[in-house]
Design a binder for these strands. Structure first.
Lengths: 192, 192
DNA sequence: CGCTGGTGAGACAAAAATGTCTCACCTGGG
DNA sequence: CCCAGGTGAGACATTTTTGTCTCACCAGCG
């Protein structure tokens, strides 16, 4: 699918493998390396050439997730303009990574090694800071803590990713559904 | 912990085992039967006496989750009074099962056997019907589909359960946080 | 006091997953 | 045309997990 100047026979697209793995592991977290390989359309041997083992694969997924979250945060310019708009930009920017984040968010097993923990806390802090800014500016209600709003954002991203994967929500509605629910809630607004 | 007229040496509390398993499997879905047993404070032999294998354990978890969801729905009286109040009752009623539901919701691997699928669709339908009723009565906005609101409810329940388990949210705030975010959203209301 | 029913600990074989290796193959580049 | 680099398929040993069994133990109950 992506032969961009590589020398010989299509050298496995690392990014594609990781995304396939995330999509599979999200709905079947006990999947075998063999199943992961098949899902990515490569052989187990090749999968093993790129990732020494399941741990290495998961850590690679985590690194990718952290990198994409950071990139999305950068792209969303969380310190500019109304906080609500920044949240919308963030959700929109993170949409392509939703399946990956859904897997990482639901696999707290990673917190055992205390390894990449630092990467996540930094992201948590940046998102929480955005919500805190919105509270300070009077945009967001103050009876929901920034920590909870951050957590809820993760949860809704995961729900949205699964809903799309299983066809319960149209892909084009992904950002809208999450944004509107997180910011506006289910109740009908009687003004504005 | 619970010796309620049983004959001999404390016969394993099935419910406690299932809840321990759910709590463990939620954060480490690849946990071994041995780890599950240790988490429940019993030996692997005893665990195996009660659940023939990992599959049987997971299916028991699923059955319990379905039963508790149905019970919570019954207790919440989803057809009575304002839909928003019914949603609040539902979230409150389902709180004790949150960790279990978090596990089941994130383990879509179950949908392979197409087994208990019927149980979940029934619950999905009942919850979606509640949201639909709220839309029909004008309480809820109509640009968020009942299916998505149902999905979001699951996601927020899972987020809430994890946030409590990891100490990021106080247990007593569980229902409030989920209810308020789902219904009201993060934006500050300018009226009411 | 002895019996009963359920448990923990551990041994054990079977099954499954993993990690490693070899070899044939294929394709782009020199 | 041949070569280099990367892949798929499959064999294989190792490790992990599972399923099964035995045996000692322990508490209530007759």
């Amino acid at each position: 699918m992506s032969h961009l100047g590589y020398p010989c026979l299509m050298p496995v697209d690392r990014d594609h493998v990781l995304r396939s793995a995330a999509a599979l592991l999200t709905r079947k977290s006990t999947a075998t390396m063999d199943e992961v390989a098949k899902a990515a359309g490569i052989s187990r041997a090749t999968l093993h050439r790129h990732f020494a083992g399941r741990d290495a694969l998961v850590r690679a997924l985590e690194s990718l997730g952290i990198a994409e979250c950071e990139a999305a945060l950068d792209a969303a310019r969380p310190d500019e303009g109304p906080a609500a708009d920044a949240v919308r930009r963030l959700i929109s920017a993170v949409e392509p990574s939703a399946a990956l984040l859904a897997f990482l968010y639901t696999e707290n097993q990673l917190f055992e090694g205390e390894q990449q923990h630092a990467g996540w806390t930094r992201i948590d802090d940046r998102i929480a800071a955005l919500f805190r800014r919105g509270q300070a500016s009077g945009e967001f209600r103050i009876d929901l803590t920034p920590a909870w709003l951050t957590e809820a954002l993760y949860g809704l991203l995961a729900s949205g990713a699964w809903a799309v994967l299983e066809g319960r929500v149209a892909p084009k509605d992904f950002t809208f559904m999450i944004t509107e629910l997180l910011l506006g809630g289910a109740l009908r607004r009687t003004n504005q």
